[in-house]
Amino acid sequence: MNGLTTAAVYVIQTLGSLYLLIVLLRFILQLVRADFYNPLSQFIVRATSPLLMPLRRIVPGFGGVDLASLVLAILVQLALMVVTLLLMGYGIGGFLLQVLIWSVIGVTALFLKIFFFALIISVILSWVAPGSHNPAAQLVNQLCEPLLMPIRRFLPSLGGLDISPIFAFIALNLLDMLVIRNLAAMTNMPTILSPFM
């Protein structure tokens, strides 16, 4: 593989992964019932609407869940993986179903990473800017709250110290280690696609 191909793969993976992140954030924000009047939410809506609106005609929502944005995330991941494999000289003939499975695994891994990093940001913000009214801070808290609330129900009160993020980190890491990585290994996911994990 020459330097130009490596650079092309890098640019495609970086830009494509950024858009994939935005699409998956749209799905998650609707899933956790985040404030869609938040300026960051509005940016995410505007960035994803051109591809999402036509897809919604084909893929309806179900039970208040925006399935079209989830399908779009999987399609974006699939396109990224196919382009990466083709640029790297791999043939995908007859392996499209397997690449689709890898795409679902990649989207699931990113789903967990979004919550993981949102928790890290939330913990840092609770130390340096508790009760912040910044739109980004509010959005991060809205992302984390549905994950932390069930854990807080089982933890005793520790005098104002919230240790629920620790248990959330453990749960997310266990899911990643025991489910995502094992699925990737069972489906023979090539290491070339590891940036998508």
Rank of each mutant, 00 (worst) to 15 (best):
F62D: 07
F116L: 15
M53S: 14
F117L: 14
G61I: 00
A34P: 02
L70F: 12
W102I: 04
T108I: 09
A34C: 05
F43I: 13
P39S: 00
R56E: 11
V32S: 07
F116R: 08
A68P: 03
L51W: 06
I92F: 09
I105V: 11
Q77L: 09
I58F: 15
I58R: 04
D66S: 10
V82H: 08
A109D: 02
L72R: 04
L85C: 05
V76W: 06
L119H: 10
L67G: 04
L112M: 12
Q77E: 15
P50V: 06
R57L: 14
L87W: 10
G63H: 12
L97M: 12
R56L: 07
L55I: 10
G106Q: 03
L100I: 12
P50F: 05
V83L: 14
V99G: 01
G93A: 15
L72A: 05
I58E: 05
F43T: 11
L75R: 06
L112Q: 09
L75S: 08
L80Y: 08
V45H: 02
V82A: 14
I114S: 06
Y37A: 15
Q42C: 03
I101A: 14
G89P: 01
L78F: 15
I74K: 10
L78T: 15
S49A: 15
R57M: 11
F117N: 11
G89N: 06
L112T: 09
I28K: 02
F43W: 13
Q30H: 14
W102P: 00
L40F: 14
L85T: 05
M88A: 15
Y37C: 09
L52G: 09
S103G: 15
Q98E: 14
V82N: 04
T84C: 07
L29A: 06
L31G: 02
G93I: 06
Y37P: 07
M88D: 15
M53H: 14
P60S: 09
I58P: 09
Q77G: 14
V45R: 03
L29Q: 02
A109W: 00
P50T: 05
L112R: 11
P39D: 07
R33D: 09
I105E: 00
V107E: 00
R33V: 04
L110T: 10
